[in-house]
Computed example of a mutant assay.
Amino acid sequence: MDLGLLRPLYKTTAPVASVSLDTTLAVENAPREIKLRWRGLRERLAGEGADEATLQALDDAVGGAPGVPGPQGEALFASEGRILAAYTLSRPPLRDRASWLPVVDPLDLVADRNRQLPYVVVAADREGADVDAYSADRHDPVSKRSFSGSTLHIQKVRVGGWSHKHYQRRSEELWDDNAAGVAQDVEAAVADVGAELVFVGGDERAIGKLRDHLGKSVLDIVVELPTGGRSDHAALTSLRESVDRALEVAVAQSHAQVLTRFTSDLKRGGAVEGVSMTAEALRRSQVETLLLTTGRNDEPRVWASPTDPLEVSSERHRLTDPDSAFAGPASALLLRAAVLSDAGFAELPDASRAAEGTGAVLRFTVAD
Rank of each mutant, 00 (worst) to 15 (best):
P106I: 02
P106K: 00
L107Q: 02
L107A: 03
L107H: 01
L107F: 01
D108T: 11
D108V: 07
L109F: 13
V110H: 04
V110E: 03
V110S: 04
V110C: 02
D112A: 10
D112E: 13
R113Y: 15
N114D: 09
N114Q: 08
N114L: 15
N114T: 15
R115M: 04
Q116K: 10
L117M: 11
L117Y: 01
L117S: 04
L117P: 02
P118S: 04
P118R: 02
P118G: 02
Y119V: 00
Y119G: 00
V120R: 09
V121D: 01
V121G: 00
A124R: 09
A124D: 10
D125I: 01
D125G: 12
E127Y: 02
E127M: 02
E127G: 07
E127H: 04
G128Y: 00
G128N: 03
G128S: 14
A129I: 03
A129H: 03
A129E: 03
D130T: 09
D130E: 07
V131E: 04
V131S: 06
V131W: 06
D132P: 03
D132W: 08
D132F: 15
D132N: 05
A133C: 04
A133L: 08
Y134W: 06
Y134T: 13
S135A: 12
S135M: 06
A136H: 05
A136T: 03
D137K: 05
R138Q: 15
R138F: 04
R138C: 05
H139D: 12
H139T: 09
H139R: 14
H139K: 08
D140P: 11
D140H: 11
P141T: 11
P141K: 09
V142W: 07
V142E: 06
S143A: 14
S143D: 14
K144Q: 13
K144M: 07
K144H: 14
S146G: 10
S146W: 09
S148P: 15
S148A: 13
S148H: 08
S148C: 06
G149S: 11
G149K: 10
G149E: 12
S150D: 14
S150K: 06
T151W: 02
T151E: 04
T151P: 00
T151V: 12
L152S: 15
H153P: 00
H153M: 07
Q155A: 12
K156F: 10
V157G: 08
R158E: 12
R158T: 06
V159D: 05
G160A: 11
G160I: 13
G160L: 15
G160V: 09
G161H: 11
G161M: 15
G161I: 05
W162D: 14
W162V: 14
W162F: 14
